[in-house]
């Protein structure tokens, strides 16, 4: 049961080929990790999947629910969250800093709420089902605030939260769009070990709720512990694809991380490049 299938994806910027003929698929209910050295094309791949870039060649098919498929590369950028049910977070956190935590989560539910306002007219007049829709939206927001341990900060501006909390809030905001596939761009970057362990738990909880995950990550502690499936990129090409145990011993991966001829233990140098 595939939730995401990327086929022959190539992305060129002028003469530079950032992603070169990459194909892989992610299974529904799995945590799939994309790893690779800096400049391997991971974020470009992400931007293609989430509609920020239009791929030069190739197709990206997502299955928001069983038996339904959507061609992502043909959708306009804003329709990907709604029709493809793909949500994402950013490597450099992108929150609405001047809005409160709760407001951030309400904005995430824009499409569901907007349809309840009758083009805004009924909402202005205060008639129709908007109130009930807003109550439901607040309940959903509260649910994710509880999951991310942010409920007591709900009325604080997002820009005033500490770094780790901002990371969690961005995940909560993405989850409020009720996605089938959540794409996380280095969610553990800059977290301390305790926060990182908390993040693992959160991601497993999200997977338990039925949402598939795709994550870029440098922190091997996170990747090896929670991924079901790992895709390795190097210089824009896929060099390996398999279970964490298989990737750990894959000679091509070790070579990519450590240089030719070196021996195993990819953990140490990778952790250094996490910045």
């Amino acid at each position: 049961m595939t939730v995401l299938a990327v086929t022959d994806l190539t992305m060129r910027f002028g003469g530079l080929t950032a992603v070169n003929d990459v194909s892989f698929s992610a299974e529904r209910g799995d945590i799939t990790a994309v790893i690779g050295p800096n400049g391997a094309g991971k974020t470009t791949l992400f931007n293609c999947i989430t509609g920020f870039y239009k791929p030069t060649v190739g197709s990206i098919v997502v299955s928001p629910e069983v038996g339904k498929i959507v061609q992502l590369e043909k959708l306009p950028g804003h329709a990907i969250a709604r029709k493809g049910k793909v949500a994402r977070t950013f490597q450099n956190i992108r929150l609405f800093g001047g809005m409160t935590v709760l407001e951030n989560l309400m904005v995430a539910q824009h499409n569901a709420l907007q349809s309840a306002t009758g083009f805004g007219v009924l909402g202005i007049l205060g008639i129709g089902g908007y109130r009930a829709a807003e109550r439901r939206a607040v309940e959903l927001a509260k649910h994710w605030l509880e999951q991310t341990d942010l409920l007591d900060r709900a009325d604080d501006p997002a820009g005033a939260l500490p770094y780790g909390a901002q990371r969690r809030l961005e995940i909560a905001r993405a989850m409020c769009t009720e996605p089938a596939l959540l794409c996380l761009d280095e969610p553990a970057a800059g977290l301390n070990p305790r926060e990182s362990a908390g993040l693992n738990e959160l991601l497993l909880k999200i997977r338990g709720g039925g949402c598939s995950l795709l994550l870029i990550e440098h922190d091997m502690g996170v990747v090896m512990k929670i991924s079901d499936h790992i895709v390795v990129l190097d210089h824009g090409k896929k060099i390996a694809d398999g279970t964490p145990a298989a990737i750990r011993t894959n000679p091509a991966v070790i070579a990519a991380y450590l240089g030719e001829g070196d021996e195993d233990d990819p953990d140490a140098p990778v952790a250094e490049s996490a910045a």
């Binding site: 969250a81 929150l95 809005m99 309400m106 499409n111 306002t117 805004g120 905001r173």
Partner: peptide
């Protein structure tokens, strides 16, 4: 309302708005 919040969100971060649909 959603529209007004979307305006303010747009002022804060347009790219994030797009990613939220």
């Amino acid at each position: 309302q959603p529209l007004g919040r979307a305006w303010e969100a747009l002022r804060e971060d347009e790219i994030a708005c797009r990613s939220l649909g």
